[in-house]
Nucleic acid binder design. Structure first.
Lengths: 343, 343
DNA sequence: AAACTTATTTGAACCGTTTTAATCAATACA
DNA sequence: TGTATTGATTAAAACGGTTCAAATAAGTTT
């Protein structure tokens, strides 16, 4: 069954397209009785005017940006989106958020939808996995569609605004070393996550830049959810000889760090006196947790603002601007889950 | 400066519109050299084909729904959106999320944008305040645009899927009464929030349905953020005579309940032995908190799923369907922050 | 070199609205 | 009664692309 058009309505109602259009747009020129009649026909036919056609005529001055995040229920992304929003709103833009749920195909679909709906530009947290597909990004480039990636993607020359994950983890490890820790391990993130890999590399690299020696046994596979941190924490520490304390755990993210904290509490292992914990991200709850979590603050807000700034500049430029690449630095927030052994 | 069109590009490149179109769409029929040349002209002119015009021809089978939430960085809404997403994705829909930041004007702008971009329908968490504006909702109705409200709005007959806030709070109070509490107070939400009012009413009503007497002094203005709960908690309990214990606090939401928990911890007041706490919403962190928070579980997931189900049914119907109204019930989750005095 | 093929390109029709000048009808004015 | 005036409606021209049959160009075969 074909969708009805304004033409169909006009015929059915015995008036011209122009009149129907006037009714749709609430123009005062149409006679009350005609308006009523046309409205009834519209209802009867369940006629929904096509927005795309409506916008065609007359310049559209509307300002919109799209954001493609990877997970909806991850505070990491909502914090990021909040940063984007702040800058974008100041400039009069509305933003639409969509989540790829870490699926390449979804990312592609969404990016094409943004372009096809004349959302003016997009900020994309790209899905990264083994055989990464970037054809859709090339398609955007072909359309001169402005976009900013939140992570470098091999094979495409595009705007990037990103976090220095490597440096972030090095910051954590370096601090622990400086405060006298000699037994440092890493609760690592998901196998597939490139963030996780970068953080593992940061961990390694911190050792190679120090006098301490790295060993593979320092890497404990964990995950990214609270439950992962909790379970891995129980599993690991229930067979650790208390004589080994004090030791320190650098966690892939705050959420598993909190899970670990919870596990240690249950095992009656004292934080930070027996085990020091460092998180990563500095999510909202981290500073409210008891004990407050020492963590590497990821400047999500700044990341979002910067990405929005770059995007909007590119959207509004008359000419195609040169590609930009910005890397933001993290900052260590020392709270209550780390012990300074030099004191 | 007028935006360039495919026509401009064609003239500049010395080819026809059809050829430019073929280049844009990567058709194989165009000669390599021509393609290159046209691409260069496109770049030089920073030509961005208008998506709306591209879609005009050829049936669009695309499936999209929009969600208007009130706050981006509120897990309440992301949980809700996750529920919507689950159902919508199953049905092959992509969703776009936008936040009104509790601003009436934004809600209006966003809803019109959704309609104008042919997003097939919308789920709206409406902004409610003193002089509520619903003209934009009428405009949607005129367009036969399918939408579902997540809260009843006076003056408009539309689809609604909502939570029974009144009943939720009554559940909490009733439980406390049944377990022997006789000193129950309420940390109330923001002045302007209609949720907050409903919950206050629920609190009141629970008393009127019991033998205990309600008094205005039981209502403590608080807010909705962690910090609000913390500060109000300190302020209130630092001047409570310990002889008054045991007492119980029903909180507007989980976030302030956690803030209160934190405050009591700092004041060395024991939860639940001296003070029982009941939250509302059952956010993710509530069950991981120490002590785990007793709270009223708001079925956000179900709410989202139901709203999506109703919306998609209305989107896909040939005829205009009758308006629906669904109210979902909450459920009490008894954890560690409440003491049963009858035991 | 004529006759076929195949590779490119063109031009006109079309998509579903809005817009506006023009028409028609009804009423008011002189 | 003829002439403005006002009110409603219409018809045709946009809007900015896509599509596709037809035209043209380029290569191949005899």
């Amino acid at each position: 069954m074909k969708k009805s058009t304004i033409q169909d309505v006009a015929e059915q109602a015995g008036v011209s397209k122009g009149t129907v259009s006037a009714v749709i747009n609430g123009k005062a020129t149409v006679k009350a009785s005609t308006r009523e009649h046309v409205r009834e026909v519209m209802k009867a036919m369940n006629f929904r005017p096509k927005g795309q056609a409506r916008n065609l005529k007359g310049r559209q001055i509307e300002r919109t940006v799209g954001i493609i995040i990877r997970e909806l229920d991850n505070p990491f992304y909502t914090a990021l989106a909040t940063g984007i929003k702040k800058y974008a709103n100041e400039k009069g833009y509305v933003e639409f958020i969509a989540s790829s749920e870490a699926d390449q195909q979804n990312e592609e679909t969404i990016s094409q939808l943004f372009a096809s709906k004349d959302v003016k530009g997009a900020i994309i947290a790209p899905v990264i996995n083994e055989n990464i597909e970037i054809e859709h990004l090339f398609r955007l480039k072909l359309l001169n569609y402005p976009f900013v990636l939140l992570k470098e993607v091999q094979g495409i020359h595009a705007n990037v605004v990103s976090i220095n994950n490597l440096e972030a983890t090095k910051l954590a490890v370096r601090y622990l070393m400086e405060t006298g820790h000699t037994d440092i391990i890493h609760f690592a993130g998901p196998e597939l996550s490139s963030h996780a890999h970068e953080r593992i590399n940061g961990f390694r690299q911190a050792f190679s830049e120090s006098t301490q020696i790295f060993s593979d046994s320092m890497l404990v596979p964990c995950g990214s959810q609270f439950q992962d941190g909790f379970e891995t924490g129980i599993d690991f520490f229930k067979r650790v000889d208390p004589k080994r304390f004090p030791m320190a755990v650098v966690c892939f993210n705050d959420v598993i760090a909190l899970g670990l904290s919870s596990a240690l509490h249950q095992l009656k292992i004292d934080v930070p006196n027996q085990v020091s914990i460092v998180g990563n991200d500095d999510i909202e709850i981290a500073k409210h947790w008891s004990p407050a979590l020492t963590t590497v603050h990821t400047p999500l807000h700044e990341l979002g603002m910067k990405a929005a700034e770059v995007l909007i500049r590119h959207i509004e430029a008359d000419q195609i601007l040169p590609v930009e690449n910005h890397v933001l630095d993290s900052e260590l927030k020392i709270r209550e889950t780390t012990l300074d052994l030099t004191k």
